[in-house]
Design a protein around this nucleic acid. Sequence first.
DNA 1: CCTCAAGTGGACACGGCGTCCACTTGATAG
DNA 2: CTATCAAGTGGACGCCGTGTCCACTTGAGG
Lengths: 193, 193
Amino acid sequence: MPPVERADAARNRAKILEAAERLFATRDPSGVTMDDIAKAAGVGRGTLYRRYPDRASIARALLDAHEHRIQEQLLRGEGPLGPEPAATPTERLSAFYSAMVDLLERHSHLLLGAETGPARLATGAYGFWRAHVRMLAAAAQAPDPDVLADHLLAPLAPELYRRHRDQGVSPERIEATLHHIAHRMLGGTEKFG
Amino acid sequence: MPPVERADAARNRAKILEAAERLFATRDPSGVTMDDIAKAAGVGRGTLYRRYPDRASIARALLDAHEHRIQEQLLRGEGPLGPEPAATPTERLSAFYSAMVDLLERHSHLLLGAETGPARLATGAYGFWRAHVRMLAAAAQAPDPDVLADHLLAPLAPELYRRHRDQGVSPERIEATLHHIAHRMLGGTEKFG
DNA sequence: CCTCAAGTGGACACGGCGTCCACTTGATAG
DNA sequence: CTATCAAGTGGACGCCGTGTCCACTTGAGG
């Protein structure tokens, strides 16, 4: 007996998510209050809190679908993103960086609305990215993959991406720099001493 | 006519900084309120706000001395930290990373009390570090030093350092990984392409 | 000792958060 | 179609941190 969601509940959930998406895209995400969302959705505070304990959980709900798509591709997808045997760790890290730049470009407002600062590192999604990058680092025989993985993910911090973009840096430049990092950090091990 | 600070004002400023330092070190820095600091310093809210508009400015005041010391060394110091002609960009970046790990280890609570998230990137101190690293990247003929500088600084985010330390990662391991990054990213250009 | 600007501290209003509970709605059984 | 009642709703409420304001105190200079 899976407790089915009642019709009015489903309707309100949709209204909430739609309103939140709009607000996050419009104003500064960290300035959006729970009250704003409730008002914009035409719903009472109690209704809002029943499902989402805070702003971050709403943003996460909106992000989940997109992040899951990337995670699927990492596990099972074709091309260098997925576990294609022919692809080198360098190529796979580059592909991962590209996918993340795409995610940041499309949804940086949600990422900023979700978690900035320490909380982001505790996210399930972050754990997934770290596990993936750690695996690539280990495959490339890099030293201390556990620590290195976090350092390789650090340039993807949403606040840094947002700042770069606001200063007129193009996504392509950011992506190119990340590819450079991927090549330098995981590629050509044999050429060093 | 430099408006000299009155004796009671100076006394209170000292009490405030002392109390704040203690509170930041004890509890979670982001949980310390202005009221807590005022109470701990034995001072009214108005007195506190007269000098420091928010928690971050207090933490910055406490950090200033330490950051200035490093900045001095970068500009005029001896050894690979300073502008010694014989040192390569790789060596200088490694030395910089070491100095920052030392700063993080000693004062991560202040850094967390100061600015987490986007605000940190707008700090004067951050601008200084970026200018320095950008210069080293350019000297090493790395592509797009403007963007790369930020990416090379990203692993130094206080929240990441704190998390690593809390998970039992030693400062030495972090430092070693950063040195690895310095070598990979700025060293041995001629051995590629 | 007097003056007065600098400095002090606490009362206050504001706004966001999260909870609570009396009421409404819709799914199901008879 | 109606009755039942748990799930769902919404807004009022209390709490807490912020930042401001202003009547009072203090100390430096004359």
